[in-house]
């Protein structure tokens, strides 16, 4: 079924967390992509919410643009909030 479009799958593993990219799959339409994602990526109780999006709807950065996009932030350590102590009871940081 190589004509089926490719979808990227994002799963939220529990409430309060972000959706995380878990993989991709093929499906004939959006609704079936969601069903496939449920079957392929949440069989072991991994999720509470799923997003699927057609891979061709994603605009991605190219490795060639790596330097202009990312290098300028490399020497700006003051943008990182690393000078604070994070209290122990703050999760997921």
């Amino acid at each position: 079924m190589s004509e089926w479009p490719l979808y990227e799958v994002f799963v939220r593993s529990k409430r309060g967390l972000n959706h995380v990219h878990v993989g991709s799959l093929h499906a004939p339409d959006d609704k079936l992509a969601l069903m496939h994602a449920r079957d392929v990526y949440t069989r072991r109780n991994e999720g509470v919410s799923i997003w699927v999006v057609r891979a061709d709807a994603i605009t991605a950065s190219s490795p060639d643009e790596k330097d202009p996009l990312f290098a300028p932030s490399g020497d700006k350590v003051y943008r990182h909030p690393t000078f604070y102590d994070i209290p122990e009871h703050v999760p997921h940081m």
Binding site: M1, W4, L25, H26, A27, M35, H36, D39, V40, R43
Partner: peptide
Amino acid sequence: APDLEEDIALSN
């Protein structure tokens, strides 16, 4: 099954 995704769905 016709596709990997369907294979897993039917097995589930």
